[in-house]
């Protein structure tokens, strides 16, 4: 089937792309050291606590409980949330952009579509190839997380399921932004603007929209805890946050991934809403891509047509 041929070609092209290799390598490297960074942080905190507890014991004072008493093995990898949001998504956007631009820059759209290849076959193949590379990246990251966590802390079967859930959702999250990169690459006549727009979308989701939700609270950016005392203009801030929150893809992602990595303490039932929101954005990105493909004109598809 031609779609599988096109998918294989897409995979080979992505593998040949040295720029993407840099982003991929950075992401894999950060995944590799994520558990170590988490372990190192916790180890430092534990050492400080132990020394403090010893001093307090020597003075005959009460020793408060360890702040790490309830920490879980997977909490060592909580930095993966940020690495995925930043490096992972940037990598996905670039992969999507390159996938959409490749044939346009090579001016081969006309010779491809003058062959017995339908638009559906071609673009399905491209998206499959792109998805395969992102899936491989997530599988590799999952493997690294599993091995590093096993070596450092050990894992239960529930932990393994949580790692699986974390990376499945990350894959969906990355695919959403990859589709943005892909769609704009097919639509725009300027290569730079085609990459800039999905990056601006990503920056807005990651840094701007969250400013109107959790970050409204003075310590919200650092510690997503609802304040116990009233803050100025609290009612207005709450109203703004309630309106914006459903659209804050990053907040939904952080909530669910915080659950999977056992750092949020929330119940699984609470995650259904967030997972639904992430899936809705994913479906929206696919629908937008489908519309772009439907309207794509092969005769004018090449960048220098």
């Amino acid at each position: 089937m031609r779609s599988s041929l096109i998918a294989k070609n897409e995979i080979a092209s992505i593998v040949r792309d040295k720029t993407l290799w840099v982003l991929f390598a950075v992401f894999v490297f950060m995944t590799l050291i994520s558990a170590f960074i988490g372990w190192s942080s916790q180890h430092t905190v534990q050492e400080v606590y132990s020394a403090s507890a010893a001093q307090l014991r020597a003075q005959g004072m009460d020793i408060p409980p360890s702040p790490l008493a309830d920490s879980t093995p997977l909490s060592l990898d909580k930095n993966m949330i940020i690495y995925t949001l930043l490096i992972g998504v940037l990598m996905a956007i670039c992969m999507g952009h390159n996938a959409g631009m490749r044939e346009r820059k090579a001016s081969v759209m006309k010779i491809i579509f003058s062959r017995p290849v339908s638009k559906l076959e071609f673009f399905a193949g491209k998206i499959l190839g792109l998805g395969a590379i992102l899936l491989f990246t997530m599988l590799l990251a999952a493997f690294i997380t599993t091995v590093t966590s096993l070596l450092l802390t050990g894992l239960s079967s529930q932990d393994l399921l949580n790692i699986f859930g974390f990376y499945v959702l990350s894959f969906i999250y990355l695919c959403t932004f990859a589709m943005f990169g892909f769609s704009f690459a097919l639509v725009m006549s300027d290569e730079t603007i085609a990459l800039l727009i999905p990056i601006i979308i990503w920056l807005s989701f990651t840094f701007v929209i969250p400013e109107f939700t959790l970050a409204l609270y003075p310590t919200g950016s650092l510690n997503p805890v609802i304040p116990v005392v009233s803050t100025p203009h609290e009612a207005t801030l709450n109203a703004i946050a309630d309106i914006v929150r459903p659209f804050s893809l990053v907040d939904h992602y952080k909530e669910v991934e915080g659950y999977f990595l056992q750092v949020s303490g929330s119940a699984w039932q609470d995650q259904l809403y967030h997972i639904g929101a992430i899936l809705a954005w994913f479906i929206l990105s696919l629908a937008a891509c489908a519309l772009v493909i439907k309207r794509f004109n092969p005769a004018a598809g090449d960048l220098n047509a």
């Binding site: 001016s107 081969v108 090449d302």
Partner: peptide, 15 residues
């Protein structure tokens, strides 16, 4: 499509 060949203007191919 099965019976034609086409060389468009400014063909670059996959570099």
């Amino acid at each position: 499509k099965k019976r034609i060949g086409y060389l468009p203007e400014n063909l670059q191919l996959y570099e």
